[in-house]
């Protein structure tokens, strides 16, 4: 396989698509369109390019949890695997709208109201909605450009106490300033398991930070952290408050540890005196 690659100068179409996809998927936050332009020029093959973008953009958009504006001033929708109904349709639980997304153009082309089957039961919705309200307050306060969403990922049809279910909180904040040659992104995912039998909530989080600075060079920061916590099962409103407190606490702490680490690396400067 590897012998074939080094001896055979002409790549197969499939290999070209794979290489193009690799570049697209490894684009820094907010830069996939620029990367796509360069990939197109390097490939010089419309057919291969179209295959690569059609496969890579949906994956990139979901993993970067990009935020798109829905037409008709409905609001914004996050493109995530949690809200995905099919390849091009994404649920926005807050507005109960379904956004139809053009992945390659990265726009939302139309919206439709969600069906009853696509939405959680009223019992679940009470927890989801209360948490969404608290998270929105927190995100507005902590992230100047943050967008959040709360999804039910498990047990959305549970009608009342007695069964487990799961909610996911997604927070995404991006900042693009190509004129200053820098881009950055923050993504955090919080999974909350509502355990009915033990009356506990298991919280697990994953936070990801990226920054790219490219004036006369290319400097990138990539950091990721996971953590776990738990609290007791309470009413929808009280659960929402305690979950949000947990998230606020961990995110603030992580940010502080990042600053300390960053500073320590610089001050120790172990490479040069």
């Amino acid at each position: 396989m590897s012998d074939e690659e080094s001896q055979e100068p002409e790549l197969s179409e499939k290999q070209k698509v794979e290489i193009a996809k690799w570049f697209l998927l490894n684009s820094p936050a907010g830069e996939i369109q620029y990367v796509a332009k360069d990939v197109k020029a390097v490939l010089n093959d419309e057919h291969v390019y179209n295959m690569a973008v059609s496969e890579a953009f949906p994956v990139y958009n979901k993993s970067h949890m990009i935020c798109l504006e829905m037409p008709g001033r409905v609001g914004d929708v996050l493109v995530t695997s949690f809200g995905q109904l099919n390849e091009n349709e994404y649920l926005d639980p807050r507005t109960a709208q379904v956004a139809v997304v053009d992945h390659v153009k990265q726009v939302c082309t139309e919206v439709r109201p969600a069906n009853d089957e696509e939405l959680p039961s009223p019992y679940i919705e009470e927890f989801r909605c209360a948490l969404d309200a608290e998270i929105t307050k927190y995100v507005d306060e902590a992230y100047p450009k943050g967008v959040s969403s709360v999804y039910c990922t498990n047990g959305k049809d549970v009608e009342g106490p007695g069964s487990d279910f799961e909610l996911v909180v997604v927070i995404s904040a991006v900042r693009h300033s190509p004129q200053n040659f820098c881009n950055g992104s923050w993504r955090s995912l919080w999974n909350i398991e509502f355990k009915d039998d033990v009356q506990m909530l298991e919280v697990s989080g994953n936070m990801q930070v990226g920054a790219h600075y490219f004036e006369e060079g290319n400097v990138q920061l990539d950091a990721q952290h996971e953590c776990k916590d738990s609290t007791i099962f309470q009413s929808p409103d009280d659960s929402a408050i305690s979950i949000t407190n947990i998230i606020r606490h961990h995110e603030t702490e992580y940010l502080a540890s990042l600053q300390v680490l960053n500073m320590a690396l610089l001050m120790v400067n172990c490479f040069t005196v």
């Binding site: 306060e141 902590a142 992230y143 100047p144 450009k145 943050g146 904040a173 991006v174 900042r175 820098c182 881009n183 950055g184 992104s185 923050w186 930070v209 920054a211 600075y213 060079g217 400097v219 990138q220 920061l221 995110e251 603030t252 940010l255 502080a256 990042l258 600053q259 960053n262 690396l265 610089l266 400067n269 040069t272």
Partner: peptide, 27 residues
């Protein structure tokens, strides 16, 4: 180059993280 790396570049990435989510003290 050392100064650029230290101050401009790593300073910039840190600044970027802070604009995404300002540290609590600032808030």
């Amino acid at each position: 180059l050392r100064n650029s790396l230290d101050q401009v570049y790593f300073g910039k990435t840190k600044e970027m993280v802070c604009t995404l989510r300002p540290p609590a003290e600032v808030v």
